[in-house]
């Protein structure tokens, strides 16, 4: 009895855990890691620059619309969730559902862009520019750089939606959907760090 138990323990310990590859195209993951590195350096540069002039950063931060920042965070999180549902749908061969979920994410992406435009308009209208002070230099460059990634993500999502509608993806072949999804999630988690860093922490 004891020998049988020992054998079964040995067998179970020899069972290999099957890991999956990174979701989507590996080449895009190189790009994702590179982008994370660039944003990481910018976040750290912002924090150390703030340490040189805390009062200026705190005063300037008060002029930002924290509500817009929070709404945009919820929008990106919701769009990321829609993308998760889209990937889950294509894995079940539900192409129409996948296209609907991804379209929802795309609509939310455009709402994010709209809110960001209003925010930028308010700042430029108040005479604020990148040369106003160090805080605004970081705020405008970080959020604009992130906005470029949102727009790039929207182009990728739109392409995937069009291809999904044409039947290019299925339960067996959906690397393209996963690739676009990974990029969109990266855009989401970078904003999740950016929001408290620039809008809240003081």
């Amino acid at each position: 009895m004891q020998t049988t138990n020992m054998i079964s323990v040995k067998e179970s310990s020899l069972e290999k855990i099957e890991y999956q590859n990174l979701p989507g195209d590996f080449a895009l993951w190189i790009f994702i890691f590179a982008e994370m590195l660039v944003f990481g350096v910018l976040f750290i540069a912002y924090a150390f620059s703030r340490a040189q002039n805390v009062a200026l950063f705190n005063d300037s931060q008060l002029t930002l619309n924290r509500g817009f920042g929070a709404i945009n965070t919820v929008i990106l999180i919701t769009s990321s969730y829609f993308v998760v549902r889209g990937v889950a749908a294509i894995k079940k061969d539900l192409t129409h559902q996948c296209a609907y979920w991804l379209s929802g994410a795309l609509v939310l992406g455009s709402v994010f862009v709209g809110i960001k435009m209003v925010e930028f308009y308010e700042k430029f209208n108040a005479g604020i520019s990148m040369s106003t002070n160090n805080f605004y230099m970081f705020y405008l460059s970080l959020t604009f750089f992130h906005l470029m990634h949102v727009l790039m993500g929207m182009v990728i999502l739109a392409t995937i939606i069009a291809r999904t509608r044409r039947g290019a993806y299925s339960a067996k072949q959906h690397t393209g959907v996963e690739t676009g999804a990974s990029f969109w999630h990266m855009v989401d988690f970078l904003w999740i760090i950016l929001f408290p860093l620039v809008y809240v922490i003081r």
């Binding site: 990321s80 999630h185 990266m186 989401d188 988690f189 999740i192 760090i193 929001f195 922490i201």
Partner: peptide
């Protein structure tokens, strides 16, 4: 606030990605 941000980002990377 930093811990919340990092936990949220990790959750997106871990579960959504």
């Amino acid at each position: 606030l930093l811990a919340i941000a990092m936990i949220k980002s990790q959750m997106v990377a871990h579960y959504f990605m």
